[in-house]
């Protein structure tokens, strides 16, 4: 259940951004979660909901931008079919993970005083 420590890191970062921008609260947090990022989204959302009470993120919603894993040949640019050995189907070279391992804080939306 490492999602709790990830949620803690997320909460601290979002609050720090909120303070730096002199905003009142965090309303929405958008994350990019790769298929191979090693994060279970539902667990992360549950952990976040459990720790945000009384913080600047108390009413913040989490939005996830899913990214599928893509292994490709760095030379031929051919994708490896899912579940197949991670070698280029054409030339046999080891494939490279082109997408799907990132766990990124993409954007936060902040509630500010209306001017």
């Amino acid at each position: 259940m490492h999602e709790l420590s990830v949620a803690q890191a997320l909460l601290e970062r979002a609050e720090a951004i909120c303070r730096a921008e002199k905003a009142r609260a965090v309303r929405r947090i958008q994350l990019r979660v790769g298929e191979l990022a090693g994060i279970e989204k539902r667990q992360l959302a549950a952990a976040f909901a459990a720790i945000r009470e009384g913080t600047l993120c108390a009413h913040a919603t989490l939005a996830f931008h899913d990214v599928a894993a893509v292994w490709s040949c760095p030379t031929c640019r051919v994708d490896v079919p899912r579940g197949a050995p991670l070698r280029c189907p054409t030339c046999g070279r080891p494939a490279v993970l082109m997408a799907g391992d990132a766990l990124l804080l993409e954007r936060v939306e902040l509630e500010v005083q209306d001017v």
Binding site: R13, E21, D114
Partner: peptide
């Protein structure tokens, strides 16, 4: 509706950057 404006801030950083 007159709600306080929402300001988006693009971050694009690794969530485990501290670690």
């Amino acid at each position: 509706c007159g709600d306080p404006a929402l300001v988006p801030v693009d971050v694009h950083e690794r969530l485990l950057a501290g670690n």
